[in-house]
Design a protein around this nucleic acid. Sequence first.
DNA 1: CGTCACTTTGAACATCTTCAAAGCACGTGG
DNA 2: CCACGTGCTTTGAAGATGTTCAAAGTGACG
Lengths: 246, 246
Amino acid sequence: MARPAASKSGRSVALDCLHCPTRGTAEWAVLNDDEMAELNAVKSTRDYQKGEYVYTQGQPCTGVYCIAAGTVAVRRAEPPLPTVLMRLVFTGQILGYRHCLREGGCSTSAKVLEPSTICHVEIAQLQRLLRRSRALQGQLQASLAADLDATEAALAHVAWLPVRSRVARLILELAQHNGSRHAEVMQEVSLPMTRRDMAELLCTRPETLTRTMAAMEADGLLQNAGHRIAIADVPALRREAQPAAV
Amino acid sequence: MARPAASKSGRSVALDCLHCPTRGTAEWAVLNDDEMAELNAVKSTRDYQKGEYVYTQGQPCTGVYCIAAGTVAVRRAEPPLPTVLMRLVFTGQILGYRHCLREGGCSTSAKVLEPSTICHVEIAQLQRLLRRSRALQGQLQASLAADLDATEAALAHVAWLPVRSRVARLILELAQHNGSRHAEVMQEVSLPMTRRDMAELLCTRPETLTRTMAAMEADGLLQNAGHRIAIADVPALRREAQPAAV
DNA sequence: CGTCACTTTGAACATCTTCAAAGCACGTGG
DNA sequence: CCACGTGCTTTGAAGATGTTCAAAGTGACG
């Protein structure tokens, strides 16, 4: 298998956007076959190892990324403060497009959590596509608005929910991206990250997270085995995720 | 002076977008004179009293607003949780445009904090303008991206800064919108909101806010007089706003 | 088989919330 | 003009929640 020298850890793969299994998922869904062919022609694909950075806060924006397979964490560091993991991005979602739509480079970093295949579109090419497809421009706008809504919701949750509820929410969210089948049956969930990453995602400390998960296991909600846990009581977990009104 | 019956508390005012003192500030700055004239023709203007809502979470989106003069708070309620005041919007800024750029109605409410004059552009008219001016579309996209950045930063601050630092930041931000002149001199700042609103903005409780501000006064940082405070020690306040690394 | 990073545990402590009650401030109606 | 209500603000005391620092355990991987 050919290994271009371009990247020390990445490996080029031939992927066809038109037949990409994620075609219907990502924002490109609004493109017609012609535009899709153009996208396919200008994109490049790379494999990433766990722990690699797709882009880095403070660097200039190089373009937009699309996750063909894998999981990526978007993290942000406000200089003197601990970093916050803002969101997880999964297979079939795009990544870093915000930085292409305004000046000023990357305001977040994107770190690969598990071996992933990620496509890349140069910013100039993206701009050509945007000029060609008003639908794509509208779609990116809508995605941006949706991200803003989601971030505002996350802010409310961090502000008002106890750690335990936030843990419950995260586990349920991850369960949706792990081939969740039987909603009420015991379900395995993989946690594709360290406890430290998970703590950053929940805006707490690893110690607190450990204690909280131990308590949840003691209460019969979870079975905890490192990076592979099982939900023992889905309804109870749902209840924890959305606790009493104030 | 004519008082149309259209609104019980509002009063129509004749404002000319082309000569609006805020013309250079808001997103409309990218419009040329022709487009500006169109904007001027389709907008309507209303006076709002303190406490009125410009739009309400859950309602369909009616269009975009532009604050000719005044201050508005954007708040969000995640159903069972206390509401969070997401941001303040000041004279010369636009409001509610996000809801026009995606489906699903208003995800926030906008509440007027002091008597204000606010212009309104129907969503259909906005869409016509957007189709006419690609620059405006790009500008809204950029603003959306900037809002997302700001909200992410706010999340990091809520997650990691103590209440006292957040109070300091808020006061310094408000000082910028109160004709701040001498950076290092004692400076009066008006707080155009209740302590409850301020607490929601800082994601804390009114009691905590009171105590924190009392402590800051005791430490010689502020002089506290209800809705009109004075910064006694600007450099010290700046230091509090950006505390030690972790 | 040792090293290094990650995870877990413990104990003390800081911060913030909660609940309850009193003090103020402002506008309304007598 | 004053009495009165309502909502905002302040204060107090108790308690929950989460953090910090230190150290021991665990596991992956060379």
